[in-house]
């Protein structure tokens, strides 16, 4: 299933990656060659095989419900691109 230009545009939008018009053909071609490699998987018989999400198949440890953080807003916001009155600023959000 080779990707077409419109697929690439859709994926780029989902991933919020701006695409340069001029790069789209090459990007499409490269992605298709990677997917060609990946598609070799389809020949493997995996009937009855359980997917493996984690190598050790351990289980989740739970944390006690204890507050252990204090306010470090100034330090965290010192590295932020745009803040005012303690808020992170972004272009107007329209709902």
């Amino acid at each position: 299933m080779a990707l077409e230009r419109s697929d690439v545009e859709k994926i780029a939008h989902l991933a919020r990656l701006g695409l340069d018009e001029a790069d789209i053909p090459r990007t499409t071609e490269t992605l298709n060659s990677i997917l060609g490699l990946v598609d070799r998987m389809q020949a493997v018989d995996t009937d009855g095989i359980e997917p493996l999400a984690h190598p050790l198949e351990a289980t989740q440890r739970l944390r006690a419900d204890v507050v252990g953080e204090s306010n470090r807003r100034d330090a965290y916001q010192a590295i932020a691109p745009a803040v005012a009155e303690g808020l992170y600023l972004v272009p107007k959000v329209i709902e």
Partner: peptide, 15 residues
């Protein structure tokens, strides 16, 4: 929360 009051023409984010 996104706060839509005007912060220099932008929205403010409180996490």
């Amino acid at each position: 929360k996104s706060l839509h009051e005007d912060f220099h023409g932008m929205s403010g984010i409180d996490l």
